[in-house]
């Protein structure tokens, strides 16, 4: 029979995570291995998901600096959340969905913060991109079209067509009903398709002259 483990910490100390290396009590071997495994799992998950999350935040907000901040905050909240899906037990897909939900809520909070008006009433100029970076032909057509869309429509379109999420998954991320997603997405897709075609025609006209 194994000898009883020596209690080296007070109960309240066990609730405190080790923040400063060497400052606290030494963790036992099993716990250290678990932590190390979790850190490795997180690093791998981060490597696979960070770029797509950043792309989503950048396109939805049209602000790269804001996307940087919100991305970091999303991961920190993900790591701190008590009910966040475990990377090892629940799988990466569930964790990714949860992460996108956090990011969506952060975006919503950000849009709501400067004013008390509804998110849909914020003028589109507020979201306009100030970047003068070299743009591809696709960006030249897509950016102006996206700027004319409402923030929620951009989020929906990005999640559906760039990330390839199903209606049910988008409903989970956005906190809306699946039936609403179907209708909203249909409308948004028709609207942006019209804008893209109009932009394309304008571009062709410009090239001809």
């Amino acid at each position: 029979m194994a000898p009883p483990e020596k209690q080296t910490r007070m109960p309240w100390e066990l609730t405190l995570p080790e923040t400063w290396p060497g400052a606290g009590h030494p963790l036992d071997a099993a716990s250290a291995a678990d932590t190390s495994m979790e850190k490795e799992a997180f690093a791998a998950f981060y490597a696979r998901s960070a770029k797509s999350l950043w792309a989503y935040l950048t396109r939805a907000s049209s602000d790269a600096a804001l996307a940087d901040d919100l991305m970091q905050e999303s991961y920190v909240r993900f790591l701190c959340a008590e009910r966040a899906p475990s990377l090892t037990a629940d799988g990466e897909a569930a964790a990714r969905l949860y992460l996108f939900r956090i990011a969506t809520n952060l975006l919503r909070d950000h849009w709501r913060r400067p004013r008390t008006a509804c998110i849909e009433e914020i003028p589109e100029e507020f979201f306009a991109s100030g970047s003068n970076a070299r743009q591809s032909e696709n960006q030249i057509l897509l950016e102006p079209a996206l700027r004319q869309m409402k923030p929620r429509e951009r989020q929906l379109l990005w999640l559906a067509h760039a990330e390839g999420y199903s209606h049910r998954e988008i409903a989970q991320i956005m906190g809306l009903g699946t039936a609403s997603i179907r209708l909203l997405l249909f409308r948004a897709r028709r609207k942006i398709a019209t804008l893209l075609r109009a932009g394309d025609a304008k571009e062709a006209e410009g090239r001809r002259w």
Binding site: S52, W54, A55, S136, L142, L157, W158, A162, A193
Partner: peptide, 12 residues
């Protein structure tokens, strides 16, 4: 729409 967004995702 899907082609435009997929390309935009790759660029971003």
């Amino acid at each position: 729409v899907a082609q435009a967004f997929r390309q935009a995702r790759a660029e971003s």
